[in-house]
Amino acid sequence: MTEPTQRTTFPAQGNRIKIADKLFGAATFFGAAFLMVVVLVIAYQLVTGSWAEVGKDGTAFFTGSDWNASAEKYGALPTIWGTLLTSLIAILFGGLTGVAISAYLVELAPKWLFKPVSFLVDLLAAIPSIIFGLWGREELVPYLRKGVYPELKSVFGWTGWFGTENSPIVGNGILTAGLVLGVMIIPTVAAVTREMLLVVPKTMRDGSLALGSNKTEALIKVQIPYAIGGILGGLILGLGRALGETMAVTMLIGNNPVLSKDLLGPGATLASLIATNFADATNNTRTALIGLGLVLFCFTLAINVLARYLVRRVRQRSGLSA
């Protein structure tokens, strides 16, 4: 901010102001530094806390396909695989849904729908993960087990992705976790897409409409291409949320850290394995679990940085600051 150039005050008062300003500056700097220290301490703790295991195993830690804490075999690959699979399902299901809702609400839907539907979608974001897990376990899983998965298996079972010949259909599994994650990230993606479409200059859309295109064409050929970077950013933010989601996944995924492409079968994610095993782990296992935390931290770090860069670029192009 601009410094005031002249002050017409008495010297004593001026001193008081100076001291107050210095203290104020120091206090705010303290707040900012605290924030920085929190991030640094997290990074430091994750690295030093897991080094005994990650440093010893090296890349084997990341590529090892066996996680068996009792045999002290710590391979992160099954949980990385589970994390990526569930997040990918979530993005395919929830991400596209989120984009579709916002595109529809901003451009196509009747005006009166915008507020109530946006409100309800935002409400979805306020519901805690644990409640999704509880509802998923009590209501969704029995429904999927009885009504949906047997059909899915009989229609697409031949691909190998939806059940193997003799696998039981439990209802808990990678697909269930991915679908619930998908619902959970809808609000994140929808909110960013909404904002990105709203910042597209009105003149561009009007120009397109004036040239004779209908609303859908204006949306698809002009507005979405303009905002595409930001929408991608929103999808990636959603991905980031899905990667780190813990409770709902823990309650729904079946918690077996195995490398399997059976989406109806159990799996585990980085976060869910930490959640189930951290509290009662032996020291070596805890070290390895912190290593999983480090992997998760790096994933979400990279994804957030990328997403925010994309969103910021669209905002800046539209003349909005920051």
Partner: peptide, 15 residues
């Protein structure tokens, strides 16, 4: 034998 063993892929695990 173990407090944890390498279960087959289709086995569901709970806390």
């Amino acid at each position: 034998v173990g407090k944890e063993v390498s279960w087959p892929n289709t086995v569901r695990r709970e806390q």
